[in-house]
Design a protein around this nucleic acid. Structure first.
Lengths: 211, 211
DNA sequence: AATTATACGTACATGAATGTATGTTAGCAA
DNA sequence: TTGCTAACATACATTCATGTACGTATAATT
């Protein structure tokens, strides 16, 4: 048994990545050996070294497979931002949180990235590439806040940069505590309220009262 | 050279922990060998195994040394909470953030704990013990929110538990993004504003206007 | 049909980290 | 002053993960 068809090979690759998610979540990225991943996937290390250059590349591919199809900041979404930046902020944030809440594999990825991984060496670059640029890149949030204020959708005293930092921090913190222990997973059901708290608090009081 | 005095031994122990902080931050907890720590501290592995049972115990001691003298939730502070819960929340949060902002060694600990450490096995228990219970244990925050509402200091629609989760998430997220890349460290100068945003947004609008 | 490249499995060589066992010296108590 | 033990250093055994070289059979290509 060797030399599978292309689809079989793709399936093997996927099984390797699935096995990696499982083991990384259980034992942490650095403590999982390639042999353990191989055995979990029902193959040998040879298969892993065929599909991936090394453990880092495997990790990177694992992230990429889940993050890339998301594409929150794809082009049509950017058009959405131009049209209604405030709703864009709410919608993308909601979409992101909903995804984490309901997509188990997606949530596992974040559990790994936030709690079962050490960001040193190549890992720093990987995080920057897939998470910051792909998901919550603060520049986009900042621009949306800037536009929202220009369009008189919301008024706030701080800079758009600071507002963006605040929103990202709140969301990141929620996900962080959310994925930390599954116990608090249920409590986060009404993250919507907490987002409302942020946006309401961000608005100046005149606006808050006028509403 | 052997058999130092008791003070020398304590100094050796401290130097080992300092070396561990340095290397953990640079290379991540799991990638740092005990030999590397020993060499950085100017001793051998023998010294480490004398002072600590193993790497996990060393890590635990490293955290404990920095976290324990903090004691945000010590008894007099709990009395403070009973007296003025809302100010207690603001003050402890501020104290905590100030500490991280200005105490380099303290910040390094959090950089390690949030970005250079994998929480599996024993590490889960260590995090729970020193960080959750010692720093931002949500139960205390929750109780403060509950008291603040009883004393008519603040009105909010959600449960105290949810409010506490929100505050902890915001602070955690700020620290997370703060320690992630030192670039955003400067941006967090006005975290005070972001906390105001949260507390203002938390308040019902009637109160917000009345103020 | 023959060839070639693919998709792995197998085997080995290397290095590195851990734990422990044992040595050694100098403070400290009697 | 003599043990005794604290505070390490040294040495060794074991395990384990990695990388690579090589084998191999089959799908794809020609």
């Amino acid at each position: 048994m060797v030399r599978k068809t292309r689809e079989d090979a793709q399936d093997t690759r996927d099984r390797i990545l699935d096995a990696a998610i499982l083991l990384f979540e259980k034992q942490g990225v650095s403590k999982v050996s390639l042999d353990a991943i191989a055995r979990q996937a029902g193959v040998t290390r040879g298969a892993i070294y065929w599909h991936f250059q090394d453990k880092t590349a495997l990790f990177s591919a694992m992230i990429e497979r889940v993050v890339c199809p998301l594409k929150i900041f794809r082009e049509d979404n950017l058009a959405f931002m131009e049209r209604d930046p405030l709703e864009f902020l709410r919608a993308t944030t909601r979409e992101f949180l909903e995804k984490i809440a309901h997509d188990a594999n997606f949530r596992r990825i974040f559990e790994i990235m936030w709690h079962k991984c050490e960001y040193v060496g190549d890992m720093v670059e990987i995080r920057r590439k897939y998470i910051e640029e792909g998901e919550s890149h603060i520049d986009v949030i900042q621009k949306a806040f800037s536009l929202a204020r220009e369009k008189n959708q919301i008024f706030f005293a701080m800079t758009p940069r600071e507002a963006a930092f605040g929103l990202v921090s709140l969301v990141d913190g929620m996900i962080f505590n959310w994925t930390k222990n599954h116990a608090s997973l249920a409590e986060c059901r009404n993250w919507q309220c907490l987002l409302d708290v942020f946006f309401r608090g961000l608005s100046e009081q005149t606006v808050s009262c006028a509403r």
